[in-house]
Amino acid sequence: MSEDTGAAIPQRPSELTSLLRLSGQALRRAFASNLTTWIGTAFFGTIVLLALLAPLIVPFDPIEQDIVSRLQPPDMEHWLGTDYYGRDTLSRLLVGARYSLVIGLTSIVLAVVIGTLIGLFAGYFGGRLDIVVMQAMDVVLAFPALILGLILVAMLGATVTNIVIAIAFTAIPPFARIARAPVIALREREFVQAERALGFSDMRIMFRHVLPNILPDILVMASLWMATAVRTEASLAFIGLGIAPPTPTWGGMVREGFENILDSYSLALFPSLAVLVLVLSLNLIGDGLRDAIDPKLKVEA
């Protein structure tokens, strides 16, 4: 008798293609049914592309100061004008996008992985483990996320890694909650009971059967929470706890522009719009995806 070989079951190609077909259908639905998903994807794709190409396409050095041409309004040379130190706003925005995206993405990936694992274990096993873990999550959840982030960054020091950790930490409890609810529903489903009756191990049931079923929900929430993460990063930078200057971050740029707002409104406005567009595009995508996987909407269609 061979042992349970865990997840290392050879996949028949037919099943893989079938699964791809299934997710393809869901994606098609997301785009077919919803114009806003397209708009969101277009904006987000553009921002990602610009951020990737930033080192190649920036018209000026984003960090080098040029006091002679400081606080210039938008013109043919500096499309979006220059800041207090004469740095080109467009170049700084392009480079700043890289930080917003990297911090937003890594912190959410971290939070999704850890939060989902916590929710999966707590929800699947239930009982005392569930009570203790989720009570702890609720305590963190009860505390205002931005304040918690502020304190963590202030104490750890404002580096990219620490900001990622701080934002991830505030997003873990909500993801644990998001993952736990459907796990509890699935645990009572008959196919999970049937698999237990078939003698499958808990790990196999959790990772091969429960996890794939909650994944769509998790991914949708991840796109919505990445919007929150980007917003939190910008807020931290605005308060003064972003990556230290002169590195350009959108929140930091808004802060600098805000301090000179009576001289020139454009300095604060452009990075503000950049943050708004990025967050909005992520929310549009998340919204469209959520509609696509919502079983209630499927029935109507």
């Binding site: 807020s235 605005f238 929140g251 808004v254 707002i261 708004l276 967050v279 929310n283 919204d287």
Partner: peptide
């Protein structure tokens, strides 16, 4: 509402400040 949800509080605050105060 999606725009309102996406705007960080400092962004919407600055816009209000620019328009209605300045």
């Amino acid at each position: 509402s999606l725009v309102g949800l996406s705007a960080p509080a400092f962004v919407s605050g600055i816009v209000l400040l620019l328009v209605f105060a300045i």
